[in-house]
Design a protein around this nucleic acid. Structure first.
Lengths: 253, 253
DNA sequence: ATTCACAATATTGTGCACAATATGCCCTGA
DNA sequence: TCAGGGCATATTGTGCACAATATTGTGAAT
């Protein structure tokens, strides 16, 4: 049993990040155990991990609830991103390898093209990846992990607070950041990153009514689980004949 | 049973951070359960938390081991600190409140005084607190938590790699950072922070032999636990008569 | 009608016993 | 003497049953 509970984690996390679960809805251990077909303690561990990542709120003796961030918490997240990503570009300015520089430039071109073609879904994905790509340029697994958590929580935020229209980063702002990086100007890069994130934050609108696209946690998770299982079954079948003991020891859990 | 396992966590963490446990030593659940007088699952949860904080290395089906960082990992930690703390001072420059500014200046004076009086223990503590104090100035619980984890791991590092002589930050470097902050110069503050942390990192020396002051995990932890218990017993007695239901609900765990 | 007390129910938390797994030792065979 | 296989042991992981706790529902008294 090497990975099945990681799959459960991903399934629930994906549903949460996409905003498909009603905020503040409770996730009952026994019910999930039934849905996913595993014992309750498996579910319990997964829920605690999700709680640690702040995607769920855990209340002792009460249960696990879908995190429903307040606007204030949202602003805290963006402030944290300003600090961390400001630190990243400040450290990166003038120290990019040529490979990193070309990769970033290529990415910027992709963003521009997607925007010109009015491909909204692609635009959103690419403009998010720009930030991850920057984090990957610094040689620090720690910072990368932290930023990924922040980006996850940001995804959850936009599902709650973002007006349906317009959700991608303006790509001139990315260009400005990249320009400062290439020029080796840390102060300018940091300032550009700060204003960029602040502009995004400005678009958050206080929720008046509850969101529309929220399903019962149970049914939504059951559906997500069904598709996940189907996908892995296919993948498993595809590699069935290949070498079976390629990995001897899982490096870490 | 509101907090006893937090106390256990702190006890083990303190022993680890002080470097009093032999690197790579195994912490056996049953043994610890015996020492601390609780059930094995309590210990298990604590060990997993310590593993998540990277103070222990958890290997599936094998157990929990005292983290013994390599020099490379140490450098990664310092790189992460350069990024995060660089981001902090970059965000803080020119935005300190007067209260924060005076608090930082006062702290700097304390450091200077301790250094002048050649009070080594105090100097080390104060120069560490300077960094935490900076992190507390930004209004971001997230960043504060992350930096505290980084500082924890740094403490562990110096226990392994630092030559016994000299372990406090040079306080002119702190003064330079503070000066740049007050002047509102983000670039200078960030640069000062980068060089400051790099200078500290330079002092790390590759370990040739195993450290001297490492005890058996069991005996060391038993001793630490005895003193911790004594302390809390005293504290409990002291507040025995006070209002007993001051807190109604624990806000979070 | 409202509020308080209290029972009933639903949900999480924990101890225990056993299963799964890894490691070290010993014994055998060349 | 050493390599290899298999058993013995030590340790972690998990399922289950029950305990602890919070919430909801009900009824009576004011």
């Amino acid at each position: 049993m090497p990975a099945p509970e990681d799959l459960i984690y991903d399934t629930i996390a994906k549903a949460l990040l996409a905003g498909r679960l009603a905020p503040a809805a409770q996730l009952v251990e026994a019910r999930l155990a039934d849905i996913f077909g595993v014992s309750r303690e498996r579910i319990r561990k997964v829920l605690h991990r999700l709680g640690h990542a702040r995607l769920l709120e855990l209340i002792p003796n009460r249960g696990a609830f879908v995190a429903s961030p307040t606007l204030d918490q949202a602003r805290e997240i963006y402030e944290a991103r300003r600090i961390v990503e400001g630190g990243i570009v400040g450290r990166l300015a003038g120290r990019l390898t040529v490979a990193q520089a070309t990769a970033l430039r290529a990415h910027a071109r992709l963003e521009e093209a997607a925007l010109k073609r009015a491909d909204r879904a692609l635009s959103i994905r690419l403009s998010g990846e720009f930030h991850t790509l920057l984090a990957e340029c610094v040689a620090s697994p720690f910072v990368l992990r932290q930023l990924q958590e922040l980006v996850s929580r940001t995804s959850m935020l936009v599902a709650f607070f973002e007006p349906a229209t317009s959700s991608e980063c303006a790509c001139e702002e990315h260009a400005e950041i990249l320009g400062a990086l290439l020029k080796g100007d840390p102060a300018r890069a940091m300032k550009a990153m700060h204003t960029h994130l602040s502009l995004i934050e400005t678009r958050l609108t206080p929720r008046v009514a509850l969101p529309e696209a929220v399903a019962e946690p149970e049914t939504e998770l059951a559906r997500a689980w069904a598709t996940a299982i189907k996908a892995t079954a296919k993948a498993t079948r595809r590699v069935a004949g290949k070498a079976q003991r390629t990995q001897r020891k899982s490096p870490r859990t």
